[in-house]
Design a protein around this nucleic acid. Structure first.
Lengths: 234, 234
DNA sequence: AAGTGGTCTAGACCACATG
DNA sequence: ATGTGGTCTAGACCACTTT
């Protein structure tokens, strides 16, 4: 564990246990530096984390203040890298609807995954559950060039686990896009909702550490799962 | 302008003008340090900004890579402080529906604004337009203790401009919550949409620099305006 | 083994808020 | 005037990826 993570953890614990209360001022940088026996920039890095998490607010000239705790049930978009990441305390399961190869990807797919002509992809469709409750429908496309094998068995578990462990592909970054929309009849059926219900349409492209796209996924969420929080500054 | 902002600006310009192309590698930290005559940590701070904006991705051991440009029309949630901030290139106008004082705020309001008993608030309801097109309905509540005067004239323009300039209140931070929902009949009418259309319900509490809440706002957005982008890592 | 980004330090100096 | 957080530096050392 890194030093600044350790300092952040210690201060976070004080905040969560109410030692520092909402609206109160934290000790000054100089003080924290002495308290934890670290340099100024290490304290600053630790406080940056807590600021992103929405715990504190730093104000030049006046001090470091404790913010109100976030309402529970909302996903902090600034700390969870995306959507599914914030759900690790829950049991995520999947029902596989379809696994197949697509020989002639359409132009959208070619664009999103930077496909060369003649390149093919794997298609996986799943319904995902959180603690036995329906969460979302996921349609994923994988480049065969990077993911040469895919099966229903793999799709039942964590596809990313498989990719990292067996194919030694290091996941680097991803682009996320989302917008408001309504469910069509087919989607509504799978999510136990009514045709035309409001939803969040979510797209994500995953890249390797050296910038090669290998997965494009489209997700539609069950309405009540889509609740977000952003701790904003200025 | 700060040094790291200047370096970020220069590199951003190179990225936007296609001098560095998608997928390519940027010069190494050591090189950039020499190029711009700054220290290592200044380069790192500059690159952090560009990473948050989604321009680049830094990979320990292998280098700094150029990411695909984000699709236009989507709001980057990591750089815009909230929603309306990303819209400064557009003309925002308002139609004031109501301005009044609320003598007996309900419990939700008391909670959100940390009101003492007997404290009153101003209520302002507006429909907001972007380039003459309807954008959202906004219901705002201001603590009279901090905002002692409010009028239709002020509400026609930028309320925050008025607060900063005339009342010398420094805005510190804010909490944002949002979720998927549907429009009710009254809202649909104001937004030229149909009853039950999908929407984004958005709440924001603004605090001063020393942590005092002074504004709670509820916003419902017109469907097509709610498109987001998140440049994610790992 | 060499090259890359990331951590951590001590210390100088700056910008802002408050008494 | 004082105390606060923020910027910037030079340099040592570490962790990971590639050759």
């Amino acid at each position: 564990m890194l030093k600044y993570e350790e300092v952040a953890l210690k201060i976070r614990t004080l905040l969560e246990n109410g030692i520092y209360k909402t609206g109160e001022r934290l000790p000054s940088l100089e003080q924290l530096k002495a308290d934890y026996h670290v340099s100024k920039s290490t304290v600053i890095k630790a406080l940056e984390i807590l600021e992103k998490e929405g715990y504190i607010y730093q104000s030049r000239g006046s001090g470091i203040f404790v913010r109100s705790p976030k309402r529970s049930g909302y996903i902090n978009l600034f700390t969870s890298n995306g959507f599914t990441d914030d759900l690790k305390d829950h049991r995520i399961t999947s029902r596989v609807i379809k696994v197949c190869e697509i020989k002639t990807p359409n132009t959208e797919l070619q664009q999103r995954l930077h496909l060369t002509k003649q390149e093919t992809v794997y298609y996986v469709q799943r319904v995902r559950y959180i603690d036995e409750k329906v969460l979302c429908i996921e349609k994923s496309y994988f480049r065969r060039k990077l993911i040469p094998y895919m099966s229903e068995d793999i799709a039942k578990g964590s596809i990313f686990q498989y990719i990292e462990d067996n194919l030694k592909i290091n996941i680097g970054y991803s682009d996320i896009y989302f917008q408001i929309s309504t469910l069509n009849q087919e989607e509504a059926l799978l999510l136990n909702q009514t045709d035309g219900a409001p939803t969040l349409r979510y797209e994500q492209v995953f890249y390797t550490q050296t910038g090669v796209p290998f997965d494009y996924s489209q997700i539609v969420f069950e309405q009540s799962s889509a609740k977000f929080y952003i701790p904003s500054i200025k």
